[in-house]
């Protein structure tokens, strides 16, 4: 007898289970089937649908009171606190971001100033180098010009000296040549004609281009 009852209970429960699954997935449609099946299993209706129960109305009245108090407590006490903490955090994060942005701008400005200073220094040094080069070149040019001047003067003087020396040498050469020619002519022929010899030497030297 006991076993049979158990079996009956299990079958009823299984049937009710199918209805539950339906109710869970399709909701309102399967609900009646569920309540009927469940009613078969337990021998009574769903307590939730027993609207004759005075506790049902009382439950709803208390629900409204409790929910009203909960709403009041949340809206006026709990939630403003959360909001203030979140606002505080947002402001702080924004402030930090602002400070970071300002610091970045400052760093950028410093970087820019540094770059400008570098560029200016480079330009200045470039001009200085150019000026120095120029002055050095001018100096060198002036010195080389002076040197050239002196050298050319020396060359001129040397040339003059050389010319003078050559002239003297040429003069001496005519004399020696004439003397030698006179002596030779005298020794060979015994004739002593200095004027003719001198003219002949003069003529001979001229033809050789050495006068």
């Amino acid at each position: 007898m006991m076993k049979r009852m158990t079996l009956a209970g299990v079958t009823a429960a299984l049937y009710s289970l199918g209805a539950q699954a339906m109710a869970a997935t399709v909701a309102p449609g399967g609900l009646e089937a569920q309540s009927v099946a469940a009613a078969e299993a337990s021998g009574g209706g769903m307590p939730q649908l027993d609207f004759g129960n005075p506790l049902m109305l009382a439950q709803v009245v208390w629900l409204l009171i409790i929910f009203g108090v909960l709403y009041y407590a949340l809206a006026n006490i709990a939630l403003p606190r959360v909001a203030s903490v979140l606002d505080e955090r947002r402001n702080r994060i924004e402030g930090d971001l602002e400070a970071a942005r300002a610091a970045k701008a400052e760093a950028d400005a410093a970087m820019e100033a540094h770059r400008a200073a570098t560029a200016r220094a480079r330009a200045e040094s470039q001009t200085a180098i150019a000026e120095a080069t120029q002055s050095a070149q001018a100096d060198a040019a002036a010195r080389s010009a002076a040197l050239n001047e002196r050298l050319s003067q020396q060359i001129e003087a040397a040339e003059a000296r050389i010319n003078a020396a050559r002239d003297t040498a040429m003069g001496a050469l005519r004399e020696v040549a004439t003397d030698t020619a006179n002596a030779l002519v005298q020794r060979l022929s015994g004739i002593k004609n200095e004027t003719a010899v001198s003219a002949a030497v003069q003529r001979e030297l001229a033809t050789q281009g050495k006068a």
């Binding site: 009852m5 009613a39 299993a41 009574g44 769903m46 307590p47 009382a58 208390w62």
Partner: peptide, 28 residues
């Protein structure tokens, strides 16, 4: 020995006689 899946939803009084006086249920 039977399956009673629905009695869990039954409303009862909570908080003893005071609750009973104002129909304060265990649900509340």
């Amino acid at each position: 020995k039977t399956i009673d899946a629905l009695s869990q939803f039954e409303l009862t009084h909570a908080f003893g006689p005071i609750g009973a006086a104002v129909n304060f249920t265990q649900s509340n």
